[in-house]
Nucleic acid binder design. Structure first.
Lengths: 188, 188
DNA sequence: CAGACTTTACCGTCCGGACAGACGGGTATT
DNA sequence: AATACCCGTCTGTCCGGACGGTAAAGTCTG
C-alpha cells in the first residue's frame, strides 16, 4: 500500500477512535508507520492532509453515488433514490466523509470550500436533471443529509428499522408523485 | 451583565467569527473583558466552558421549542410542527447550539452526552406523545435536523424559498394524515 | 549519479492550567 | 463608629508540554 494512502487511512482511524482533537501530525505519522518527516514529504501541512482526506473520500462518495444511481431503474429520481439508499445504513465511505468534514470544520472552515462545491453539484443535479419536482428532490437530500449528520454527532440516531421506514416513506412519496405525473402526462 | 454570561457569549462569538480552532482560553477571556484567571474562576477548564455553553444553549432551545409547540393549534403533531417551524430560518439560538455542538465534538466527543440525552427526549416525545405516526414524527425530526446541520457546515444550504417549500411539504404530510386518521376514527 | 523517498534532530510558538495574591463589599466584634 | 476579618471575585504571571513545521543528512532504486 502506498505510503500516502496509509497516511490517509491512519488519519481517519485516528479521528474515529480518538477524536478530532487527537488528529496531530505525530499521531497520524506514528499510526501510518512513518516518521514525521516522512509524513510531511507527502502532505506539506496539516491543512494539506485534510484537503487530501476530503478529496479522496468525496471522490469515493461521488462515484459510488453515481454507480448506485445508474443501477436504479426509475424514470425519475434515480439520483434521489440513490442518495436515500446510500444512507440506509452508515457505510464506511459515508462515515469517513463525515469525520473528515468534522475535522475540516474544526481546523479551518475554508477547507470545506471544495466539499461545498460538490454538494452544490449534487444539489443542482437533483434539482434540474433528475426529473423530480424540485421540492421533493430537496426533501430527499435533506433527509439523506439529516440522517447522515445525526449519525455523525450521535444525536439520538434512529434504529435501523426506523431509518428504513422513513426512507421508504420519502422514496414512495417521490416515486408515487412521479408515477402520478406520468399518468397525467400520458393522458394529455 | 454577569461575567459568567459575558464569557459564554464571548465564546460563541469567537467560534462563529474565528472558528473552532480559535476557541482558546486567552481569546475568550480577552473578548469577555476578563483576565485568564478571572475566566478560570468561572469555568475551571476548557471542558467546563463547553459544558456550560451546551447547557445554556440547549436550555434555551428546549424552552423555545416548548413555547412554540404550546402556541400551535393542532390536535396532533404540535411538537413536530414546532420543530419544523423552528428551522424555517436559522435563529440565533439554533446557530449558537450548532456551533456549540461543533466545538464539543472537536474538543471531546464525550462532552455531548447530555446533549444527546436531550435529543433523545425530544425524539421520545415526538414518537409517543405527539399523536403522530411514528415514522412521520421521525421524518419531521430528520428534516429539521438535516436543514439545521446543513446550515452548520454550509453544505449547499437551500434558499429561504426552497426551505419553506420543503417544510410546508412535510408539515402538510403530517397534518393531512392526521386529519385522515381523525375521519377514520370518527367513522367507527 | 540522480531523484524519489525517508529519517533524525531540532526550533519557536501557543496553549491549558496553576498559583499567589489584590481588591472590595459585607459582617461581626469591640 | 472604628477595627479586624472573611470571602467571592478577579488579576497578572509563570510553567511544562505538545504541536506544527524546518532543515539537513541518509537510503534505496533505476
Amino acid at each position: 500500500m502506498l505510503t500516502r494512502d496509509r497516511i490517509l487511512q491512519a488519519a481517519t482511524e485516528v479521528i474515529k477512535q480518538e477524536g478530532v482533537s487527537s488528529l496531530t501530525l505525530d499521531k497520524v505519522a506514528a499510526r501510518a508507520g512513518v516518521s514525521k518527516g516522512g509524513f510531511l514529504y507527502h502532505f506539506g501541512s496539516k491543512d494539506a492532509l485534510i484537503i487530501g482526506l476530503l478529496n479522496q473520500v468525496m471522490g469515493v462518495l461521488d462515484t459510488e453515488l453515481n454507480v448506485l444511481a445508474d443501477g436504479i431503474d426509475a424514470r425519475q429520481g434515480a439520483f434521489a433514490l440513490a442518495y436515500l439508499e446510500y444512507v440506509q445504513e452508515p457505510t464506511k465511505a459515508a462515515t469517513d466523509t463525515a469525520v473528515s468534514i468534522l475535522a475540516a470544520a474544526a481546523v479551518d472552515d475554508d477547507l470545506l470550500d471544495s466539499t461545498r462545491a460538490t454538494f452544490q453539484r449534487w444539489q443542482d443535479r437533483l434539482r434540474h436533471d433528475d426529473g423530480l419536482d424540485e421540492t421533493e428532490a430537496l426533501l430527499a437530500r435533506v433527509v439523506g443529509d439529516g440522517l447522515w449528520l445525526i449519525d455523525l454527532f450521535g444525536l439520538a440516531p434512529p434504529t435501523a428499522d426506523e431509518r428504513r421506514k422513513v426512507l421508504d416513506l420519502v422514496s414512495n412519496l417521490i416515486t408515487d408523485h412521479g408515477a402520478a405525473r406520468d399518468l397525467a402526462d400520458s393522458a394529455e
